[in-house]
Nucleic acid binder design. Structure first.
Lengths: 133, 133
DNA sequence: CTGACTGCAAACGTTTTGCACGGTA
DNA sequence: TACCGTGCAAAACGTTTGCAGTCAG
C-alpha cells in the first residue's frame, strides 16, 4: 500500500487505479492542465472518460489533495498540495515552475494595515524562463 | 469628449455608449465579473447582448485598457488597467480590494536566481475582509 | 458615407450530470 | 456484499462566431 493510497483513504477516497495514476502523473510532471492530463491518462487507460478526470480532479481539490493554479492568459494547471509557494510561468513555453520566496513580513504588515485576516497567498510571476532565452 | 472616449480612440476603438458604460461601471465598481457586468449593463441598455459584453471585454483586454484578475475558487473579475498592484479577496463577501505592496526587491532577487526574465507579477491574497469579522 | 459595432441566433468547447455497470474495501 | 467510482451519453454552461442591420466618425 503506497503513499498515495494512504493519503486517499485518509480522505475517505477509494484508491482506484485512475486516482493513483493522476497522483503519479502530478508527482512526475509537477503541473498539468486537464487536457494534457487526459492525454496522458489515455495512454494508461485506453477507455478512460473525461468525466472521470473531472470528477476526480474536483473531489481531490475539495479534499485538499491537489490544488488548482490559475494562470494569467492560460489554462489552469493542477499540482499536488504542498507547502505554500509561488509560481514562475514562462510566456514562451508555458512551463510552470515552483519557487519559494518569503514575502510574509511585508504581506502580514499589509494585511494588518487593512484589517484583513489572511488565509492564503497566491503569487504567479510571468516572464521568460531560462530555457527560452 | 470625456476621458474614456479619448483613451478608446487612442486604441482605435470607437467610443460607443456600451463601451463608455463598461468603462464607467469599472471605474465606479472597481472590480466586476462578467455576469454582474451584464446585469448592470442591462439596466442601462435593455436589449444589450451578452455577446457585446464579451466582444468588448476581449477587445479592451487586448488593448490593455482593462485587465482580467483571476481569483482562486471564484470567477474572474475585470478592472481598469492601472499601475501594478495586488488584490485582497474576501472569502466571505467576495469583495476584491486593491492594495499596493512593494515586493520588488525580493521578487527580482528570486527571478535573477532562477535566470527568469520577469514581465508581470500577480498576487492575490485571500482571507476575511474587515467588514466580515 | 464607410467601416466598425451591435444584437441575435447558432455553434462551440468545456464541464457537469444521470445512469447502469464494475471494482474496492 | 455494499457502496463508491467508472464510462458513456446527454445536458448544461460559458464563450465565440457569423450575419444583417445600425451607428460613430
Amino acid at each position: 500500500m503506497n503513499n498515495y493510497t494512504t493519503i486517499l483513504r485518509q480522505h475517505n477516497l477509494k484508491a482506484t487505479p485512475q486516482r493513483l495514476a493522476i497522483a503519479d502523473i502530478l508527482y512526475v510532471q509537477g503541473h498539468i492542465n486537464i487536457e494534457s492530463l487526459y492525454a496522458v491518462m489515455l495512454k494508461k487507460f485506453n477507455s478512460i472518460s473525461l468525466a472521470t478526470i473531472y470528477k476526480n480532479i474536483n473531489i481531490m481539490v475539495e479534499n485538499s489533495f491537489i490544488q488548482e493554479v490559475k494562470i494569467p492568459h492560460a489554462k489552469s494547471v493542477y499540482e499536488l498540495k504542498k507547502e505554500e509557494h509561488s509560481h514562475l510561468v514562462c510566456n514562451e513555453c508555458g512551463e510552470v515552475q515552483d519557487v519559494t520566496i518569503d514575502l510574509d513580513t511585508k504581506i502580514d504588515e499589509m494585511a494588518q494595515a487593512n484589517n484583513f485576516i489572511l488565509s492564503s497567498s497566491n503569487l504567479v510571476l510571468a516572464g521568460i524562463c531560462k530555457n527560452c532565452h
